[in-house]
Design a protein around this nucleic acid. Structure first.
Lengths: 207, 207
DNA sequence: TTGACATTACCGTCCAGACGGTACAGTACT
DNA sequence: AGTACTGTACCGTCTGGACGGTAATGTCAA
């Protein structure tokens, strides 16, 4: 029911990073796409199977129940962010303000690369508010870490809120700000911690 | 389909402000409550009718289709905010920064009074992402007005984002910050525009 | 004042269709 | 032989919504 990070049927750790997507990945992406297009309510297993290019039986082989699929959506969302975050923290040697700066860096990269928001979590939440719990826990912990590691905890909180604002705008595809404005906002945040930014890259090439 | 603010069956303008709730109001509140409890996907007309204390037939008399009910949810959300905002703007005589300050004031009041988030909009969005469009339009216009009216447009944008962050945390009941912290964050924003705040009222009486 | 009809605000029932899930036989690759 | 599916058929449940009724209230002419 609410068991997040459940055991996967097989070990994926041997797979290459930028390899061809697994069936699992294809299903998750299909679910996110459908959610974005027709809304979480209309996310049916039939539709996901069709979009992912497999049969319903095949889908239910990978995800035995719809709840497991939704769990997969949430798990992917959280773990992908966390991995990026830890990487950024490590590159800053876990020094002062490293958590805040890492958070900023992760979102900056996301906005620069114009990565689509995996709106699948909306589907999960819409089906069962209980899926919010792990996200709640994660965010609580994240904010805690940001504050403890920051020179100015209050400022860290403001950064958290601003980022959260950007994130929610993206989640709802609320294109109120264009990409440049979003990046400018993030850089403004960054400058609160690193006042001297010698060469702010305005429009870096998209890899 | 996407006609917001549709004609209501009768003129409610004669009704007193703090009067007994109309059937319409009861239905809308019931829908919001159910959404919060069991998630937008499980918002059924039967459940709403039961919660609101009338039959399904009666519900469908007030809202001929489910889509109309969802429209009602969105419309209520937007119009209630807008009314509060205009009132706050007027009380500041539409002077410089009045829009930004009004937005801050509205949310401050909301957090101080601990008003519950009408999570009904989540239900609307979950059923049909098209319901985001009017909200998108409104927010775009709001941000525009905040910027044009503000002494520092960039700062106005940061305020908008921070408020948006607080709002999304509340929408998802992401109780990461306690009430005092949220109010402190809002006051910090306010002080960016009104540096000298002589007597910040902590818990003003609800009028 | 009364009878005829209209409108409002509902109730209770019914139904076609969609959905999640099961079951199982078959198949292609490793 | 096992893994990872395909494809079809099916079941029970839930859902939106159509529909026919009904009680209360209002309107208006005779």
């Amino acid at each position: 029911m609410s068991i997040l990070f459940w055991q996967q049927p097989y070990d994926e750790s041997f797979r290459m990073v930028a390899d061809i997507p697994t069936t699992r990945d294809k299903i998750l992406q299909a679910a996110a796409e459908i959610t974005k297009e027709v809304g979480p309510v209309n996310l049916s297993l039939d539709a996901v199977a069709k979009r992912a290019g497999l049969s319903k039986g095949g889908l239910l082989y990978t995800f035995p129940t719809k709840a497991k699929l939704l769990e997969g959506l949430v798990e992917q969302h959280v773990s992908e962010f966390d991995q990026s975050l830890r990487r950024e923290e490590a590159s800053r040697n876990f020094g002062p303000n490293s958590v805040v700066l890492a958070v900023i860096a992760v979102y900056r990269a996301e906005f620069v690369c114009n990565e689509p928001e995996p709106s699948g979590i909306l589907a999960a939440i819409a089906n069962d508010p209980g899926f919010l719990e792990p996200i709640r826990r994660y965010n609580k912990q994240l904010l805690q870490r940001m504050r403890e590691n920051a020179a100015d905890p209050m400022l860290a909180m403001m950064v958290f809120l601003t980022i959260e604002g950007l994130r929610s705008l993206k989640l709802f595809e609320m294109n109120v700000l264009d990409r440049a404005e979003q990046i400018a906002a993030i850089d403004r945040l960054k400058n609160l911690f690193e006042p001297a930014d010698p060469a702010p890259v305005e429009t870096p090439a998209v890899a």
